[in-house]
Design a binder for these strands. Structure first.
Length: 645
RNA sequence: GGCGAAGUAGCUUAGUUGGCUAGAGCGUUCGGUUCAUACCCGAAAGGUCAGCGGUUCGAAUCCGCUCUUCGCUACCA
């Protein structure tokens, strides 16, 4: 009966805030794959959840004046609610604050320590507090944090490290011999060229700078590094135990068949996670798919640019299945998908309302109008019927072929090809003409039977993607869901069955203008909300710490080693400074010369490009929501060196 | 700067190992139809397959160069 097991996971969502539609997309995508596999007859285990530790959450909770646990309880519940709202059929919703998970992480940490894969070391002067990061000697840029350039202090702190280098060769070997492991391939190249081939540094896997994490039980000054904690959810959630007492579920399900994640965290899943598993002596997941992102109007979603879209808003506007439909349909396989409001309205109107909704509606109407709602196969067949039947009976395998390659968007398109063929069939057979002639009533009955049967097949195939719609259609046609194995047959609809007397509109057509107005109202509301939230006021004393002066750019040239940087020579009063600025994309050196700009003059000098250059300050610039950058200049004449306050 | 991916009709895109007039959806125009959510069906227009050169009997597909976009990375104090 069962075709075997299928274990699929999403990344667990970080509980620092409400997830936007991009995060929700991942859940829906995973859900459609999980549902399809179930339909096919696999024993599916679908796990998702929330990642709840880390300094960011500790800080957010403090801001909100509640404990970290209270904070993550709220956010996790909200995320779960959204996942439920979009009909995510997860089997397990794990939280990294679940006690079994926390205990197991402690055991894993200890085991790796005892076997020597995690070792204790001491840092002297190489911790960057703001970045929450340790750096090895070679990573430092002239003794400063390579991430943010700030001072790293000589904290003589102990820390634990995972020996990545020990397993690097095995991992490279695995990736080379398993081309399907990292998908799409472009991600694989990135990992190889940027990390694996240059050589891996051992990874620091503990922190002492904050408390909100899983304590290292034999050394409770330390908490476990967030990623070690988070990644392990994939095994702890199904009952892994590193002492050898793993659950039956774990034994059955691991290794995972698919980790579905965003392309931004491919590195953690294809380097750190496999190495952790190797150290534990467990098999590696079969595939990691770094899916692309949904971009709103071509730009990345961010709260500051006010183009964030939340799933609940979309669901309110369009309905669950419409939302599921277009995120799945619009998302290509390896490039980012672009969502615009126009595109959403277009998809809903032309595909869902016109093609599918109208087809179901017209079929049921005619059945009621001409045949009293009775669907009966009178077997008055004509050659035209064969072509319809062929499309319908072949659809299942076409969908399966696409799904096997994770081409979800293409799979949906196959189903809509079926519905389109049905509409064509209506035109070919002209039931309204048959209906006028009593002698042709049997032919009419067969035609409507064929249509009903075809719609049932299509509706069943649609279930993984739009489960509510499937249910609605089947209810209107007064029948039940069919088994996957029967979906390549024709003629299963019970003879003499009666369809619903009144048809309900499945998808209402949207008026473009009306929708636009609703959307604008929504965006306004959201903007107001975020503006309200941003009241991180500072005092005048804080502001006075920043010293800004007017500077005149007397010379400017490109930095040959970089495609972003310009090297400016700036005169500020009597002194002359060199300032590197990342604006080569927007300004040419010629344009820069002679400009009077705002310079932050009391920033610590920063060595850049491996110490080849030193930047002595910052030139102020503004960036808009589209990413355009303009320098701040002085209105009218003003001597260089003038203090800004 | 290093590495990688990609540039196909107005828009979103399919094109497996090179092979008949380069497909599809949406949009547009025209025609048909009326059962239905002013829907559906048909037809047409629209492509120097980024550009140049090469390999080949034959290239969107392979090779080289150029241009553009994107990703990762280094880097935007």
């Amino acid at each position: 009966m069962s075709k075997g097991k299928y274990y699929i996971t999403t990344a667990i969502a970080y509980t620092s805030g409400k997830p936007h539609i991009g995060n929700t997309y991942e859940a829906v995508l995973a859900d459609s794959i999980a549902r399809f596999k179930r339909q096919e007859g696999y024993e599916v285990f679908f796990q998702t959840g929330t990642d709840e530790h880390g300094q960011k959450i500790e800080e957010k909770a403090k801001e909100a004046g509640i404990t970290p646990k209270e904070f993550v309880d709220n956010v996790s519940a909200e995320i779960k609610k959204i996942w439920d709202m979009v009909n995510t059929s997860y089997d397990k919703f794990i939280r990294t604050t679940d006690s079994y998970h926390e205990k197991q992480i402690q055991k894993i940490f200890k085991k790796l320590y005892e076997q020597g894969d995690i070792y204790k070391s001491v840092y002297e002067g190489m911790y960057c507090t703001p970045c929450e990061s340790f750096w090895t000697e070679s990573q430092l840029v002239d003794g400063k944090c390579p991430d943010c350039g700030r001072e790293v202090h000589p904290a003589k702190e102990e820390a634990y490290f995972l020996k990545l280098s020990k397993y690097a060769d095995r991992l490279i070997e695995h990736i080379n011999t398993h081309p399907e492991f990292i998908q799409p391939v472009s991600r694989k190249n990135e990992m190889m060229n940027n990390f694996l081939l240059p050589g891996l540094q051992d990874l620091c896997v503990s922190r002492t700078s904050f408390k909100w994490g899983i304590p290292v039980d034999f050394d409770d000054k330390h908490v476990v590094y967030v990623w070690l904690d988070a990644l392990s959810n994939y095994i702890t959630g199904v009952g892994y135990d590193c002492d050898g007492n793993s659950s039956d579920l774990y034994k059955k399900m691991w290794p995972a068949d698919l980790h579905l994640i965003g392309k931004d965290i491919v590195r953690f899943h294809t380097i750190y996670w496999p190495i952790i598993l190797m150290a534990l002596g467990e098999p590696l997941p079969k595939q990691v798919f770094g899916h692309p992102w949904l971009l709103m109007n071509g730009g990345k979603m961010s709260k500051s640019s006010g183009n964030v879209i939340y799933a609940d808003d979309l669901v309110e506007l369009f309905g669950v299945d419409a939302v599921r439909y277009f995120v799945l349909h619009e998302m290509p396989f390896d490039n980012d998908g672009i969502i615009t409001w126009d595109l959403i309205v277009e998809r809903i109107n032309s595909d869902l309302a016109n093609v599918l909704g109208n087809l179901v509606n017209r079929t049921i109407s005619m059945t009621n109008k001409y045949l009293g709602g009775i669907v009966c196969n009178t077997n008055v067949n004509e050659p035209v019927d064969e072509e319809l039947k062929k499309v319908v009976t072949e659809c299942r395998d076409k969908v399966k072929a696409k799904m096997d390659k994770l081409r979800v968007a293409d799979a949906i398109t196959e189903i809509f090809t079926l519905f389109k063929r049905c509409n064509k069939y209506v035109d070919e057979t002209e039931p309204w003409i048959l209906g006028k002639d009593e002698a042709k009533k049997d032919r009419l009955s067969t035609v409507l039977y064929n249509l009903t049967e075809s719609i049932v097949t299509g509706a069943c195939l649609l279930e993984p993607f739009m489960p509510d719609t499937t249910e609605k259609i089947l209810a209107q046609l007064n029948t039940n869901k069919r088994a996957f194995d029967e979906l390549d047959r024709f003629g299963m609809y019970p003879n003499g069955n009666k369809v619903a007397e009144k048809t309900a509109i499945l998808f209402a057509r949207l008026d473009a203008k009306e929708t636009e107005e609703k959307i604008n109202a929504l965006m306004e509301r959201q903007k107001a909300k975020t503006e309200k939230k941003q009241d991180n006021n500072i005092t005048i004393d804080d502001f006075c710490k920043v010293e800004m002066k007017v500077g005149e750019i007397i010379d400017c040239e490109k930095v040959p080693e970089s495609n972003k940087l310009l090297k400016n020579t700036v005169r500020i009063g009597d002194e002359t400074r060199t300032i590197l600025s990342g604006i080569a994309k927007w300004y040419s050196p010629e344009e820069m010369k002679g400009k009077k700009v705002v310079v932050v003059t009391n920033l610590a000098p920063r060595k850049m490009l491996k110490g080849k250059y030193v930047s002595e300050g910052m030139i102020a610039a503004a960036e808009d929501s589209q990413g355009n950058v303009k320098l701040l200049t002085v209105d009218g004449d003003m001597e260089s060196g003038a203090l800004i306050s």
